[in-house]
């Protein structure tokens, strides 16, 4: 099932949750909606699910208008952030719910329902919990049951709202891998919302980065990390050094110091220069685009993280390999292996 969203606008009072969003999701994709809270990602997901309606715009599934249908008719599996398991039902009955409420004409017989639920519980590897109540499960188990429940109705699309948001770090990591392999197995078009970039980059085939109700960038995990399209994406994904620079007369200046960097192709005016921490190469003083004094060094496994006061006045943090030990008080030169400049402040 492919999904197409065109020019979606949704306001809550004066707050624009979605401000003209266009998105195409291909059949079988596993897509991440990534953004800070309030970026509109959950609103977008809820509109696709039919739990909310846009003020304007279109949503279509395989080319047919989805907004004409309610959530009930869309056959979309939705996994809620807090799981929304029915607490008075056993795990088994939770998963069976979607099958039991089907119209009588197409409802399966009890044996088929039981077999199907068993199959789903096997799929999420929790068949041994069938008779428990949700309150007796751990967070990760609830999450998997919520997923099994959503899959029971054989959804055309699977939507997950912050699927791992309420879990602790270790369980999150396990479930990420599990979700990816599960998607590989069932191959349903899936969208999940997250504010965790690591999660998005690790799990998804494609990442949609959102901010303030708009899409900032759509691309593969490599794309959004390696070639961020906007300043927001660069600072939101991965750890960046951000410096306010001025571009004039083919020169880039930081404070009042011209940097030894080529300004070609960039519009003159106040801009921001972004460099990944690990893209700053350390050299002897006088080499490289920047010069600074090491203030402070800490070791993080394979890298050393140094706080460097640039001679322009800014203080930055860099990650350097351990092969050359840095010491507080050293004066060093820094050369960005790669950098990006975005106009504006």
């Amino acid at each position: 099932m492919s999904i197409e969203v065109r020019n979606l606008v949704k306001k809550f009072g004066s707050f624009k949750a979605l401000d003209g969003v266009d998105l195409k999701v291909d059949n079988g994709e596993l897509l991440a909606l990534l953004g800070p809270s309030g970026s509109g990602k959950t609103t977008l997901l809820r509109i696709v699910a039919g739990l909310d309606w846009p003020d304007s715009g279109e949503v279509s599934f395989n080319g047919e208008d989805a907004l004409a249908q309610g959530a009930r008719e869309r056959h979309v599996g939705f996994v809620f952030q807090h799981y929304a398991l029915f607490r008075h039902m056993t795990v088994f009955e939770n998963v069976a719910f979607g099958l039991r409420v089907q119209p009588r004409a197409i409802r399966k017989d009890e044996a088929t329902i039981r077999a199907r639920v068993k199959e789903l519980l096997d799929l999420v590897q929790l068949d041994w919990l069938a008779d428990r109540y949700p309150s007796q499960l751990s967070g990760g188990q609830r999450q998997r049951i919520a997923l099994a429940r959503a899959l029971a109705i054989e959804p055309r699309i699977l939507l997950l709202d912050e699927p791992f948001g309420a879990l602790d770090a270790k369980v999150r990591k396990e479930l990420r891998k599990w979700l990816r392999s599960l998607h590989h197995e069932i191959n349903v078009t899936s969208i999940f919302v997250t504010h965790d970039q690591e999660e998005a980059l690790e799990v998804a085939n494609r990442v949609v980065v959102m901010d303030k109700g708009k899409i900032e960038q759509i691309g593969s995990p490599d794309d959004v990390y390696e070639s961020p399209a906007t300043a927001f994406v660069h600072s939101f994904i991965g750890e960046s050094i951000e410096l306010p620079v001025l571009i004039a007369d083919g020169l880039i200046t930081l404070g009042d110091r011209p940097l030894r960097l080529a300004a070609d192709g960039h519009a003159p005016g106040a801009s921001r220069l972004f460099v990944r921490r690990h893209d700053m190469l350390v050299g002897p003083p006088g080499s490289g685009a920047f010069e600074g004094a090491v203030r402070h060094v800490r070791n993080f496994g394979p890298v050393q993280r140094a706080e460097v006061a640039l001679s322009g006045g800014e203080t930055i943090e860099i990650d350097a390999p351990r092969d050359r030990e840095l010491r507080a008080g050293d004066t060093i030169g820094l050369e960005p292996r790669r950098y990006r400049i975005f106009a504006g402040t």
């Binding site: 739990l51 959530a71 009930r72 599996g77 929304a84 719910f97 959503a150």
Partner: peptide, 8 residues
């Protein structure tokens, strides 16, 4: 919402 999205 969960019940609704499951078709109830």
């Amino acid at each position: 919402e969960a019940a609704g999205s499951l078709g109830a």
